[in-house]
């Protein structure tokens, strides 16, 4: 079983001890994607601070390894659906940083033409089904995508992400029951970042080992070190294979941590700065990747700085685009409410 991230042994710039199989190309790809997510989120936080992004904005910083590892475990056609902490999932699926950032600023260039915002974005083309604002609602929706996969026989698997907070919603268990009953190809990925807004998992859950939550439905579960992208990828491959082979759903509990508050307006007084710093300094998911790359001499500091520079440029372009893209025209106010009837 995975260790709690705050107690993980690895120290900064030291590679994890149990070396998992990987390649230079894969690790550099992880590094680039996870850094992109982090820099994107930092920029989003900055634009929020400048008043360019409004409303609710939930950042993914600290959790990058979860979505990066799961992305590496799926194939084309597999879907992802999640709650409102969704920017990382979109970037992992290859949605354009410009379009995501422009949605955050509420502009016409956003994925939802500015009508959805941070919590409500979709890309049917990239198999991203949202972006849902009601805690836990994405779970039956994700199981429904799996129902469609099964019905159509398309061989695809639905990755349904939710947090430790959503894990206490009743509809999650309604979905577990039907997904197992009908053998649906779905992997439930619980991103346990240990705080449901301001309430720690210990204060909210009678059973804090969330991977066990499927036991009474006969759904196998696995706890995973969600700060180690290779551990995530390996568990993801097992779970996706399980679901795709007709054995029904699987639960992966990713032990992870968010560095920022629940949303931008959360001062995060329910935990100590020492706790956050401890994870940051000793168990950062990007440091893990970086240490392995340096250790294996797959790249040196200078080469990684180069990647950092490229990522910063992508994020900077996204921010520029998101500021320059115009607000949606008034004519957009009353469109997309109903589909025109198909004759």
């Amino acid at each position: 079983m995975a260790k709690s991230p705050s107690k993980a042994a690895a120290s900064k710039a030291a590679a994890p001890k149990n070396l998992k199989k990987t390649t230079k190309a894969e690790m550099l790809e992880f590094y680039q994607l996870m850094l992109l997510i982090r820099r994107f989120e930092e920029k989003a936080g900055q634009l929020y601070g400048m008043g360019l992004i409004a409303g609710f904005c939930h950042l993914y910083i600290g959790q990058e390894a979860v979505v990066a590892g799961m992305k590496a475990a799926i194939k084309d056609g597999d879907q992802m659906i999640t709650g409102y902490r969704d920017h990382g999932h979109m970037l992992a699926l290859g949605m354009e940083p410009t379009g995501v950032m422009a949605e955050l600023t509420g502009r016409i260039g956003g994925y939802s033409r500015g009508k959805g915002g941070s919590m409500h974005m979709f890309s049917v083309e990239k198999n991203f089904y949202g972006g849902h604002g009601i805690v836990g609602a994405q779970v039956p929706l994700g199981a429904g995508l799996a129902l469609a996969n099964d019905y159509l026989g398309n061989g695809s698997v639905s990755l349904t992400f939710f947090g430790d907070g959503a894990a206490n919603q009743g509809q999650v268990y309604e979905s577990f029951n039907m997904a197992k009953l009908w053998g649906l190809p779905v992997v439930f990925v619980i991103e346990n970042n240990q705080y449901a807004m301001g309430t720690s998992i210990e204060r909210a859950s009678s059973e804090t080992q969330l991977y066990k939550r499927g036991i009474s439905f006969g759904i196998p579960g696995e706890q995973v070190d969600g700060m180690d992208v290779l551990a995530v990828r390996e568990a993801g491959l097992r779970a996706v294979k399980h679901a795709r082979s007709g054995k029904g759903p699987m639960i992966l509990e990713m032990k992870t941590y968010r560095y920022r508050g629940h949303s931008m307006s959360d001062p995060a007084k329910y935990r100590t700065r020492e706790e956050v710093n401890d994870v940051r300094q000793h168990n950062d998911p990007i440091d893990y990747v970086k240490a392995r790359i340096i250790d294996e001499k797959w790249a040196d500091d200078a080469a990684l700085k180069e990647i950092d520079k490229e990522v910063r440029a992508i994020v900077s372009d996204a921010a520029d685009y998101a500021r320059e893209s115009p607000e949606p025209p008034a004519s957009d106010l009353m469109t997309d409410i109903l589909a025109p009837e198909v004759a």
Partner: peptide, 23 residues
């Protein structure tokens, strides 16, 4: 023609997800 358990919130959500998925 699918019999569901008694679980309205859940099966309504699965139905909507299936509609998103092309059914």
């Amino acid at each position: 023609v699918i019999d569901t358990p008694i679980t309205e919130y859940g099966f309504a959500g699965l139905g909507v997800g299936a509609a998103f998925g092309g059914l």
